[in-house]
């Protein structure tokens, strides 16, 4: 899970889930706690599903929140 997805891809990561920033990848402190939780839970779920998915090449998975 990375903010700079292009770097993640360059260094050879195969399953990439975008995060929202460098200092706070999974929860913007300027937003309410519930919003941070929803975002974090969603993106971790995308990561888990990515781990269970068969891929043929390096893939950046789509996030909704």
């Amino acid at each position: 899970m990375a903010n700079l997805v292009s770097i993640a891809k360059t260094v050879g990561s195969n399953r990439i889930v975008p995060t929202i920033s460098i200092p706070y990848p999974l929860g913007d402190p300027n937003t309410p706690k519930e919003e941070q939780w929803k975002l974090r839970k969603h993106r971790v779920e995308v990561a888990l599903d990515a781990l269970a998915q068969n891929i043929e090449e390096a893939t950046i998975f789509e996030v909704k929140i």
Partner: peptide, 28 residues
Amino acid sequence: GFDPSAANSDPNCIVPLDALKSFENEGK
């Protein structure tokens, strides 16, 4: 390499243990 204030006030924003634990509790 970055401003640590956000992660220090909520370390789960870097290590999402809370979210992963909830998926463990849900059986996912």
